[in-house]
Design a binder for these strands. Structure first.
Length: 106
DNA sequence: AAAGTGACGCATT
DNA sequence: TAATGCGCCACTT
C-alpha cells in the first residue's frame, strides 16, 4: 500500500461528468488513514498520476487549478483528454474545463 | 545517505 | 491573462 495507491483510489471516486484538481486530491490525502502523512504537495499527486498507467484510473478527470489539462504528458494527448471530458458532459471554456460547474465536491 | 526529478499552486510582475 | 520564481513531497538512482 503505497502513497500512489491512495491517489488512484481517490481518482477512481470521481463521478462521471465531474473533475477535480491535483490540489484538492492533495488536501483530501492530507489526513491519511494511518496519520503518517501531514502535508502532501499537489506536485506529488501529479507525479503519482504520471507514474500510473492503469486504464481503470480516470486520470482525465484530474486537471490543474486553472482547469487546464496536462500540457506535456497527458495519457493520450491533450486533445484526447478534452474529447473524453466533453463526452462525459464536462463543460469547457475555451481550452479550459469549466471548474465552477464541474468541480467535484465530495 | 544525498541528490535529482516532476500531470502543481500561489504570489508577484 | 501570461510569464517567473520559489516551495513543495514521494520516489528513484
Amino acid at each position: 500500500m503505497s502513497f500512489f495507491d491512495e491517489v488512484y483510489k481517490v481518482v477512481k471516486l470521481i463521478p462521471k461528468g465531474k473533475v477535480t484538481t491535483y490540489g484538492e486530491i492533495a488536501l483530501r490525502l492530507r489526513s491519511g488513514p494511518d496519520g503518517s502523512r501531514i502535508n502532501i504537495s499537489p506536485r506529488t499527486v501529479g507525479w503519482a498520476l504520471h507514474a500510473n498507467t492503469d486504464p481503470k484510473t480516470p486520470c482525465h478527470r484530474v486537471v490543474n487549478k486553472d482547469g487546464k489539462l496536462a500540457a506535456n504528458f497527458a495519457f493520450d494527448g491533450e486533445r484526447e483528454q478534452k474529447r473524453r471530458l466533453l463526452a462525459e458532459g464536462v463543460g469547457f471554456i475555451g481550452e479550459r474545463v469549466n471548474l465552477v460547474k464541474h468541480i467535484w465536491m465530495p
